[in-house]
Design a protein around this nucleic acid. Structure first.
Lengths: 317, 317
DNA sequence: ATTATTTACGTTACTAGTTACATAATAATA
DNA sequence: TATTATTATGTAACTAGTAACGTAAATAAT
């Protein structure tokens, strides 16, 4: 019975570790069986020094993808065994070069035979399989360089949550959430202005009664975010009061709300959808740009009702 | 630059470990990012308890393929966090059952969502590759159950050494080796008898001059083993004085020597090749059987020259 | 020329497991 | 029934690495 096996992707880390431990142990036993006084953990450092004559601690650390304290520890053990020597760099007095000693070089022929056997044994073990472990690792390592496991998981989460997000129309029972979410971000980054109070506390009169809309993003039974569409005329609309709760940040709820508003304006036959914002709100501005908004000059025409507004954007239909 | 990559089978253990560490670290970061107070190393124990209600330490250890001290440590931490409870078995007072606590069960829905995301993220990472890592591990784990890595390597070594073993004819310069190898095993397992001294010290007269042969197995420039073919008549031959040096044991040098002797008897037109041995020498008797020798009764006919002889075998041509 | 930053190496404390051993309870056996 | 073996759990010491921090030397910036 092996639970890890049945857990698939969830336990991949543990299984890799288990397999690694098992194989390393066998290699340890092999050196002993062959009568060679050599610890398999020394192999990477030792082998690299065979190939490179002399190398500094950091150079080894980089080549082997292990931390420098690990290199230092291994070097200490190898020096204790007498397999390597170390010498100071003459130019850079911080640097210390490691190289094989006489004794190390004397051990080499014997080691090389053992390595040959291990390579052959490993080859026999890994060959003739449907999926080659070595190549599989290669491919995964490569894929991880493109996008980390962390990133993969985050994307899976975003996808899952986004799929569960539903945009719903205004309902008086959500009125408090509309106010709370907006007061929250306004107080966090700026200060509440008169126009905010009018639009939020007076949203029925100032937004809805004037032919505007308020939308909510629902995740299961919880409000995750909101935004308003304010009507100025049959041609002219404003996207405003968009906010997303902290715990739902980063899963593109804003995008979903924005697309809803844009679709609505299009359906209403509007000609312009504009918005006002502040240049310090980088993620928001990125979103607006991705939604298709273009920056337009603030000066000339109407001046904003909001002190914090220092950028204006619009979409023309 | 990544040396491990270029080392193929030789560094497979280190690479597995490195990949494992990397993925485990990412999982750690994911729990943190999701705001869940959960350490990935708890996962196997926790998950198994989700599936099994209650389990004893040893039961977990067996299911997860980790040692019981590891289970105890994990259980301690999980108990400290309050995620599991433990209770004594009423019948067997040694046993202690672990089970999820209230708090553990309360955490479960949140964890399950995270696990879902991890499984999906892992799936996306591992899918659409030429070689599927999960399947590759599966296959290797399976193959290792049939024959361990240790065994694979040993076989590679045996194959390599056996290929390099050459059987050579008698030469006076090897006379001492013939004596030494044989006195060694005789003294180790039995005691030297008069007949031994005659056959070994007097091999020229007693074996070679009577139409017999002495063969040596050479590994590079070293004698690895030896055996003699004694002639009694044109029909009747004896295989005797077979010995292999300790450091060459286990690579089937005896088989190679035996086959040489059998071929020689066949070429000489002999009718019987017999040998005498001792029942305690199990590996030798196995070899003789594999070479085609059959046991024959000791009583009747000639009595052996050797006290230690308690079994007689022969091949008839 | 002085100061700040980076690099190279070293040390300490931690992590997640292992092996080896100890102890008590239970089961098997003479 | 007394003794022996086995099982379940626990503890201590070790392993092979990491992260975090410190120090000195070298390099870059002001």
């Amino acid at each position: 019975m092996d639970i890890l096996k049945d857990l698939g992707e969830l336990a991949i880390g543990s299984r890799l570790r288990r397999l690694s431990d098992q194989m390393m142990n066998d290699v340890k036993a092999i050196y002993k069986n062959f009568g060679i006084d050599f610890n398999p953990k020394w192999f990477p450092v030792f082998y690299t020094l065979v190939k490179h004559e002399k190398l500094a601690i950091m150079e080894l650390s980089e080549q082997l993808n292990i931390t420098h304290p690990a290199v230092i520890k291994l070097a200490k053990e190898l020096q204790k065994e007498g397999y390597i020597d170390s010498e100071k760099d003459t130019e850079d007095r911080r640097k210390r070069y490691l190289k094989l000693s006489e004794k190390g070089r004397a051990l080499l022929p014997e080691l090389e035979l053992a390595w040959k056997d291990m390579a052959k044994g490993g080859y026999d073990l890994l060959q003739n399989k449907q999926n080659n472990l070595l190549h599989a690792i290669q491919e995964v390592e490569y894929a991880l360089r493109e996008k980390s496991f962390f990133h993969h998981i985050k994307e899976a989460r975003i996808e899952r949550m986004l799929k569960a997000i539903k945009i719903v129309d205004y309902d008086p029972k959500y009125a408090d959430e509309f106010k709370k979410i907006n007061y929250n971000w306004i107080e966090k980054y700026f200060k509440v202005e008169q126009a905010d109070i009018e639009a939020l506390d007076g949203h029925q009169e100032k937004i809805l009664n004037k032919g505007g809309y308020i939308y909510f993003a629902m995740y299961e039974n919880e409000i995750a975010g909101t935004c308003a569409l304010i009507k100025y005329s049959d041609e002219r609309y404003e996207l405003a009061k968009m906010g997303v709760k902290d715990k739902f940040k980063g899963i593109q709820i804003g995008k979903k709300l924005g697309l809803t508003v844009i679709a609505k304006v299009r359906a209403l036959g509007g000609k312009v959808l504009f918005l006002e914002s502040n240049k310090s709100l980088k993620p928001a501005l990125n979103l607006y740009t991705r939604l298709g908004f273009k920056e337009i000059p603030m000066i000339g025409g109407s001046v904003s009702d909001y002190e914090r507004a220092d950028i204006k954007m619009e979409i023309r239909f």
